[in-house]
Nucleic acid binder design. Sequence first.
DNA 1: AAAAAACACCGATTGACAGTCGGTTTAAAG
DNA 2: CTTTAAACCGACTGTCAATCGGTGTTTTTT
Lengths: 135, 135
Amino acid sequence: MQSLKRPYLGELEMAVLEHLWSHGEFDAKGVYSALGKTRGISHNTIQSTLERLFKKKLLDRQKISHAYVYQAVVNRDELMGRMINDVVKTLSKNNSDGMLAAFVDIAARTDEAHLDRLEQLINEYRSNRDNELLS
Amino acid sequence: MQSLKRPYLGELEMAVLEHLWSHGEFDAKGVYSALGKTRGISHNTIQSTLERLFKKKLLDRQKISHAYVYQAVVNRDELMGRMINDVVKTLSKNNSDGMLAAFVDIAARTDEAHLDRLEQLINEYRSNRDNELLS
DNA sequence: AAAAAACACCGATTGACAGTCGGTTTAAAG
DNA sequence: CTTTAAACCGACTGTCAATCGGTGTTTTTT
């Protein structure tokens, strides 16, 4: 019963990830220019954050010349899936109905048209599965 | 962008909640007998944990004689819904498709029959909505 | 009513972990 | 070979879960 804190991300970590998601690869300097300056934090702080995200395997990096260039290895949706899965794993005991009901509620909450789209995705999933069985 | 609040629930907090979910109301002593003894932790630790959960509004309590009796105010599914919603709120940017796809994936992961059930729940949701519109 | 037991409440400590830097070392570049 | 930029290391703060001891208050018990 591990807790829900595992892929926990702090505020700055989230912001850095967001930035990499929308702007692609960056080195520490670039992220600092984009985020650090307005926040009034130092270059080093950004660097530590990138390092931490790297250790958490959310970022990959390559040394270009003598500076690392970072890029996200999970996209927003993958991370979301992972985190939702963690919640579900911890809280779904035997019965999955609560989980499924939560999905429907959340989907419908912002826009009921999401229900249609959800149904559509279910069918797409089934088709993909069937195709795989044929091959 | 500030959801995904700090460590949602610790390990002991989760265990206490689980216990209250499956066994109903309890005072500190009861929870201690059930969880504390085998874990070799003190009565006080259990009490602090109950207190913390109370402050987080996950438990309610009434003073019976001079001891508090605690009970959960959210059930497992509600808590799960809340937590999933937090994840989604933080990570769904405009586009909800990733969220919906994650739902389908997670539902199908353990058992593809969940997709049928999910579809069923979608339809139930629609019926309920339609009935409400009539009244 | 006094003594004993049961609790709540307060405060302190430890251990993680995010956020934050400064200083030092290393490596690139002129 | 000096300057400079970046990685690396270590430190300190703040927050939070977990943990418990001590103190005082309310019940029980005798």
